[in-house]
């Protein structure tokens, strides 16, 4: 149990650190910023309690908000993503019962499943985020383009992270 808390805390700190110190400085062609920190929510175990999931998502977003000076936006977007996570999981998974404490990773679910799962949820997250940022429905094409391009970058980054973590896990066990 303690080990798990340390593992998640460490993961949280690393992802927030990478997000704030490196990725937030990147603006491809002016408006495309990749986001890695939603991976922390994506990686939470399947059997996590609903309130833990929502509160974790809210506070993760809030921490990002505090450091990137955008109060509430990341919190709201991450919260929406976390809220839809169980629905998405049951939508794309044949087997819906997860009694074990397993995480949505390559090892257990396979690369294809992880990719679809990441793509859907990251798209939801980015769409909410950019919509909140723009805060109006005019010029929606531009928001959509920003969402799609940023989603591509973020998903690529997250798959890369999965690959890196996967190999680490395999060498450990």
């Amino acid at each position: 149990m303690d080990f798990k808390i340390i593992k998640h805390t460490g993961r949280f700190l690393i992802m927030i650190g990478i997000q704030l110190l490196i990725l937030n400085q990147i603006h491809f062609s002016g408006f495309i910023t990749p986001y890695l920190y939603p991976l922390f929510i994506l990686l939470l175990p399947f059997n996590i309690k609903g309130y833990t999931l929502l509160l974790t998502a809210f506070f993760t977003g809030l921490v990002i908000d505090i450091f990137s000076d955008s109060p509430g936006m990341h919190a709201s977007a991450t919260l929406i993503m976390a809220f839809l996570r169980p629905a998405v999981i049951s939508l794309i998974t044949v087997k819906t019962e997860f009694d074990q404490d397993i995480e949505p990773r390559f090892d257990f679910m396979g690369a294809g499943w992880v990719f679809i799962y990441t793509l859907i949820l990251i798209f939801i997250h980015h769409l909410s985020l950019f919509t909140l940022e723009i805060f109006r429905f005019a010029d929606y094409g531009e928001t959509m383009l920003q969402t799609i391009l940023s989603t591509a970058f973020s998903v690529g980054l997250i798959m890369l992270a999965h690959i890196l973590m996967g190999t680490q896990k395999k060498t450990k066990t």
Binding site: L54, L55, F58, M73, A75, F83, P86
Partner: peptide, 25 residues
């Protein structure tokens, strides 16, 4: 339905943050 209510509550809090702290919003 606590999952939904908690979500709605936190979402309201987030919206409050957004509206309170961003002049544009």
């Amino acid at each position: 339905h606590y999952f939904f209510f908690l979500f709605a509550l936190l979402q309201v809090v987030a919206m409050m943050f957004i509206v309170q702290n961003n002049t544009y919003h």
